[in-house]
Simulated assay, not measured.
Amino acid sequence: MASYVNLVKLSVGTDDIAGLAAWQATKRAQTDDGLPRHVTRMWPKRGSEILNGGSIFWVIKGVILCRQPILRLDEYLSGDGITRCAIVCKPGLIRVEATPKRPFQGWRYLAAADAPADLPEGRQTEEPLPPELSKALADIGVR
């Protein structure tokens, strides 16, 4: 049984996996050491479980399409003087089986047993389907 927990997060304003990768390549989305991060208002209460092997699963247009292993949780002092949590991830996006996910705010915990499986190694480099098509196929049970 896995002893870690994942996070699931909407990638707001992203049209596809390439768009998420492009955003993460910007200086604004990186730590001082060049790693991709996502800054959030709330600090995960289950941080030790997340750091024991968890990933952040990204929802793009209503479908979980990829994940990134979480490396650390950093304090981040935002421009408004409020300390927030920066979820620092391993560079690169790992494609997973397309899994529909209803809209929600913030992030949610995702048990390891409930997480979508990674696509097989040979499929990681395939041209991804548009998120809308991935969602339609997942809705009918085709992954």
Rank of each mutant, 00 (worst) to 15 (best):
R123W: 12
R143E: 05
D15Q: 11
G19F: 12
A18R: 09
K101T: 09
G92I: 02
G106C: 02
E126V: 04
L20G: 07
K27A: 15
Y4R: 00
L7E: 08
L129G: 06
L133Q: 15
L93H: 09
S11I: 00
P103R: 09
K45E: 09
I17V: 13
T26M: 04
R95E: 04
G62P: 00
K101E: 14
W58I: 07
C85K: 02
L71S: 11
R37W: 08
D74N: 15
K135H: 12
L65M: 13
V96D: 01
G81K: 10
I140S: 07
L110N: 06
Y76V: 04
T14A: 11
T99F: 01
T99Y: 01
T125M: 00
K101N: 11
A138R: 01
F57N: 09
A117S: 15
K45Y: 02
A117I: 00
Q24E: 12
A2R: 02
W43D: 09
V142E: 10
P36A: 11
A113D: 14
G92E: 01
A25N: 11
M1E: 04
I60P: 09
P36Q: 05
A111S: 13
C85Y: 01
Q124R: 07
W23P: 00
V63C: 07
P69E: 07
R143W: 13
A117T: 06
V59G: 02
G92M: 01
T125C: 00
G122P: 00
Q30R: 15
L137G: 11
P103F: 07
V5G: 05
Q68V: 05
